[in-house]
Amino acid sequence: MADLVYEYSVVVLGAGGVGKSALVVRYAQGQFLSDYNPTIEEQYRCDVQLEGKNCVLDIMDTAGAEQFTALNEVYIKRARGFVLVFSLTQENTLQDIDNIRQQIQMIKGQEANIPIVVVGTKMDLAREREVTRDTIKELASKWGLPFYETSAKNNWHVTDVFHDLLDQMRRRYPDEPLKRRKQKKKTLKGPKHRCIIM
């Protein structure tokens, strides 16, 4: 433990109801969020040990793409890593991902190697699945991004997602040990703060 803490801000984006919160809560809290409640905005902080270094993942869980479109830009500017979530059971949620992906590239400009992970959720609902593995392979090579198929319910590949992202961010921003910034400058969440520290 040291003064050096690597902090990375991550934002989770995707269409409404695809399971962004479930994914994040599964990772940050280790449980499955079975409630059916849309998110406005939630922030989670997770301490992770990576290669002997202390890292903090500051994960911003957002409303579905349909809500605060104006806010996406703010999120994107602020974050370093992106988790783009779509539902394997809803093919059209891939379109939203594509839109967001292009928006990220536009906002981040010429920056190469923006840390992005694309996540398909609800893998356990095999019978309702609409997005085939072939589609995913095709998009993965087309976009040049890593894809994961996950199930927050069964905890399949959830940690892989965030560790892959953390890995990408570590490579992309190697020399920037940050002090813990004051997080409280934004009072986004109303009276109830739901930060989780693992």
Binding site: A70, L188, G190
Partner: peptide, 13 residues
Amino acid sequence: PLRDVTLCAIPGG
């Protein structure tokens, strides 16, 4: 927009 988010929050949900 951040202020709007605050305004739209529903505490006690």
